[in-house]
Design a protein around this nucleic acid. Structure first.
Lengths: 251, 251
DNA sequence: TCCGCACCTTGACGCAGATCAACATGAGGG
DNA sequence: CCCTCATGTTGATCTGCGTCAAGGTGCGGA
């Protein structure tokens, strides 16, 4: 009998002109001729939810952008303890120019499409194309800020605040992506399992579950099923996250 | 009576040629003419130990490099909880091109000298000088890696492992800086107070003190006074840090 | 020389979150 | 339709680290 592989189709764009991340990815500042040069070294790859894109330590002969879907960057210790160190959303860059091996496990948590560039030609092109390296610098600085903000969450926040922080990040992203407002209620699906949330937050999955239940009981969020979340009052959530300055309403 | 301000002198270089960080800072790849252009927009500033360089949220009209001494990047919550998000060593870059206000408190923990560039001309120069933005990209990617490694420490390591991790980082840096080997015993002075270590590690200063005492009792380290540390066996320390892969012996 | 202050250490105790364990829920497959 | 397995919830108990408290140490200044 023939097996029908669940093909994560859909988001693969026909060409850069109709690419959903055209104006946010590494290529954001490229001119037509530069896009054409990139086009010659690029290819698309699709991953099913749960598939590992690369294992830490493996040789990596490409870099690329997440086009659609979500991936995670995870570090694992010898005894099995795991810490997520990055959440890759559409337009985020994967891989590091000038490095042979992957530093972290990259796993697709939803069906995902990547736009990959062969590493050697990409590196060479970076030297000749300031538009690419300038944009990559900007994106890397943003990621560094995000990592540092996450250090505060990991080092100093309580379990409840950690959950609220994660929810507010996802809510904010979803609101801006769907052009929703942060005034009314926000509705979205959690893209992560409880275990993945625990890996992100430096908690156990039991604690994650308990704190989500507590936030639900206290009316900060409401749940339909296990993943579908409604935030009735975003400012209340920010208070629970002990998040001052409320992030300027944009990411 | 005349007050003699304790002038942190010494390390201010006469010109770029004899600058101690010439080959590791943002300017590492610059040619003579590029250095000359940088020279026109640069000035040195000295800070005594304990002085705040900038407060988070303050307008920042310069960027720059640490020439000598050590500074910390710290984030503070409204209720006073603090998390250090970066340790700035000689050659590290301070500030972010394209940003108006400082994102974190920057504090000199030892006497420190900075080589500052006026922000607007520096940003303009970056556009024309790929050598600068390429080097800055490389440094930012390194910092991102360091931040992510620190996320694992904050999220998943025990107090004892956290202390051992911090000591191994300082030991490794010191060994490479002084061209020492990692085979024999390593000797250095802690550049941080117990409180600063606690802020870095997401602990309280009492726990830091207790764990240092425990490591001393177990022979992993030995102490003369409160700051002068000897590591008799670096590999033992790495084991205590639960640090696999031992970092390849270089930074 | 002594004082004051910043920095550090150590002890007693409590609690947030980990651990261990049992059970619930729901989707996919035979 | 039921079984299985992945995922999630909830309870009981344990423990690592925080909190509160009481000194100790050593340097700079009067």
């Amino acid at each position: 009998m023939s097996i029908t592989l669940k093909q994560p189709e859909g988001a693969t764009p026909r060409d850069c002109g109709e690419c959903p991340i055209r104006h946010r990815a590494v290529c954001a500042r490229c001119e037509a001729d530069e896009l054409e040069a990139l086009d010659r070294i690029k290819y698309y790859r699709s991953f099913e939810a749960g598939r590992t894109v690369i294992w830490a330590g493996d040789r990596m002969d490409f870099v690329g952008s997440v086009v659609s879907g979500i991936a995670t960057l995870t570090q694992t210790m010898e005894d099995g303890r795991r810490q997520m160190v990055g959440l890759l959303l559409p337009s985020d860059f994967v891989g590091r120019p000038g490095r042979e091996a992957a530093a972290y496990d990259v796993v697709a948590t939803t069906d995902m499409v990547m736009c990959c560039f062969r590493k050697a030609p990409f590196e060479e092109m970076m030297l000749r194309t300031p538009h690419i390296s300038q944009r990559l610098l900007e994106m890397t600085l943003d990621e560094l800020d995000a990592a540092r903000e996450w250090m505060l969450v990991l080092g100093r926040k309580t379990a409840r605040e950690k959950i609220a922080s994660l929810l507010s990040i996802i809510a904010r992203r979803d609101a801006t992506l769907k052009l929703g407002s942060l005034q009314g209620p926000i509705v979205f699906d959690l893209p992560l399992t409880r275990e993945a949330m625990a890996d992100y937050l430096g908690l156990t999955l039991e604690t994650v579950s308990r704190q989500i239940s507590a936030l639900r009981k206290d009316g900060v969020i409401s749940l339909e099923g296990k993943r579908h979340v409604t935030i009735p009052d975003f400012h209340r959530l920010l208070e629970e996250a002990a998040d001052d300055g409320d992030g300027g309403l944009l990411t």
